[in-house]
């Protein structure tokens, strides 16, 4: 690597320096926009005692769920963890520490962490189990709780395109937590579908500036779909063929 060139050529290099008991912030919502190959590399490395910060924990055989069978995760901070049998088993058995955090609070914790804001007040969670042990304060007659920011030793991110300087563009709802995670890692590693030359991305259209990014790698992606819902080809209505409950 020279100058601002962030591109690395192997997944081993991409996750170099990750050691036991580190904290990793991961982008993705469900299985959408997850850094699937970086997760696979963490599994391959066998790093243990990890604290994961991610909205979800994948499914049994894909996404962060693949780190469960070998007990690589010590603790997870997430908003929703409902799609994973092994996760539930480890949580119920007390083998896995789970800190359920409201989705908006989780996003803001990452944003604040990356922006040098140590904590913030939010009305989310007041009067609920989330508020336990947290400072409460009233502003203009309304109660708020103090939530602390999160930073990670690593952030793992999936973007659509990057240039060699690590400027990022995300695609559709695969953006989700990724830009926030990108700001909050001491080492931010991004895997992308396409790497372009510097100058090819329109500066006005860059979602994450390269200053947040340490390493970029080009991957190929399965992009598994969790709930495949369709309408008939000739239908004009929004009637679902399959309805999740």
């Amino acid at each position: 690597m020279a100058g601002f060139d962030k591109v690395v050529s192997s997944y081993e290099e991409a996750m170099a320096g990750l050691t036991d008991n580190m904290t990793i912030i991961a982008g993705g919502f469900g299985l959408c926009g997850i850094p699937e190959n970086l997760i696979a590399e963490i599994k391959r490395k066998g790093t243990k005692g990890l604290t994961l910060v991610s909205n979800n924990c994948g499914v049994d055989d894909f996404g962060l769920g693949v780190l469960l069978p070998n007990r690589q995760i010590k603790k997870i901070i997430a908003s929703y963890v409902g799609e994973n049998a092994e996760f539930e088993r480890q949580m119920m058995a007390g083998e896995l520490e789970v800190e359920l955090t409201p989705q908006g609070t989780l996003a803001e914790k990452m944003r604040a962490g990356g922006a040098g804001i140590p904590a913030f007040f939010t009305a989310t969670g007041v009067g609920t189990p989330v508020a336990e042990g947290k400072e409460e304060r009233s502003f203009n007659g309304r109660d708020y709780i103090l939530e602390e920011a999160i930073t990670g030793d690593f952030a793992i991110v999936k973007a659509w395109k990057a240039d060699r300087y690590g400027n990022l563009v995300f695609r559709k709802t695969a953006r989700n937590f990724n830009p926030l995670a990108a700001t909050a890692g001491k080492i931010t590693v991004v895997e992308v579908e396409e790497i372009v030359e510097v100058g090819e991305l329109d500066p006005d259209q860059i979602h994450t500036p390269g200053i947040y990014v340490n390493r970029v790698i080009k991957g190929s992606f399965e992009k598994r779909i969790e709930q495949r819902t369709t309408r008939p080809a000739d239908s004009e209505t929004a009637q679902p063929k399959h309805q999740g409950e």
């Binding site: 559709k172 709802t173 992009k223 709930q227």
Partner: peptide
């Protein structure tokens, strides 16, 4: 999850893994 202006479910041909709602449906 980050979409304002959600449309109907896709036809089989329109399915895009990068475009889901908060229920994780395409």
């Amino acid at each position: 999850n980050g979409l304002l202006g959600m449309g109907q479910f896709p036809t089989e041909g329109e399915i895009d893994a990068d475009l889901i709602n908060a229920g994780k449906q395409t």
